[in-house]
């Protein structure tokens, strides 16, 4: 974890400083006529986060670690989560513009296919079509939530 701690600590420190000096002044008012200003509490927590992030980075840098552990975040996993994030964003867009049933069918079918269910195409078809339809009905009739 040493190398990852250094990278994540440094990244969080940098993000913390950007938030403190750039984002917060633009997004939160720094003055109040009564009590304390709206930015005091968020800034207190941000400084705390940034301090411990920097501490994480520095403490790992000072740590003499001769044995480098296997990285728990190889590139192919980062690539995988990026693909999943884009996929989920696409599903959200489909649900917003077309509807839950179509988005749900696509989501289940693609994920089942990716997980090797193409060998059982009947099961893949049945599960991907029936699940969103049943959920839609259950949420609508039972919980009175009309899904999009």
């Amino acid at each position: 974890m040493r190398r990852l701690d250094i990278v994540s600590g440094a990244t969080l420190t940098l993000l913390g400083l950007i938030t403190i000096f750039v984002i917060v002044p633009n997004q939160i008012s720094g003055s109040s006529e009564y009590g304390i200003a709206p930015d005091v509490f968020p800034l207190t927590l941000l400084w705390t986060t940034t301090f411990f992030a920097a501490l994480l980075c520095v403490s790992r840098l000072l740590k003499k670690d001769t044995q480098e552990e296997r990285t728990p975040l190889p590139f192919r996993e980062i690539k995988f989560v990026a693909v999943i994030a884009v996929f989920l964003a696409a599903i959200v867009t489909i649900i917003a513009y077309v509807g839950f049933i179509v988005g749900g069918i696509i989501a289940i079918a693609v994920l089942m296919f990716a997980m090797g269910e193409y060998r059982h195409w009947v099961r893949l078809t049945l599960v991907s079509v029936l699940t969103p339809a049943i959920l839609y009905l259950v949420f609508w009739k039972l919980f009175h939530v009309p899904l999009p």
Binding site: I91, A107, I108, M112
Partner: peptide
């Protein structure tokens, strides 16, 4: 129970739950 069936179902269940 095959994970390749249950996990995609849970993804859609999460979406429905979050919307609700």
């Amino acid at each position: 129970f095959p994970k390749s069936v249950i996990h995609p179902i849970i993804v859609v269940l999460c979406i429905a739950g979050a919307f609700a």
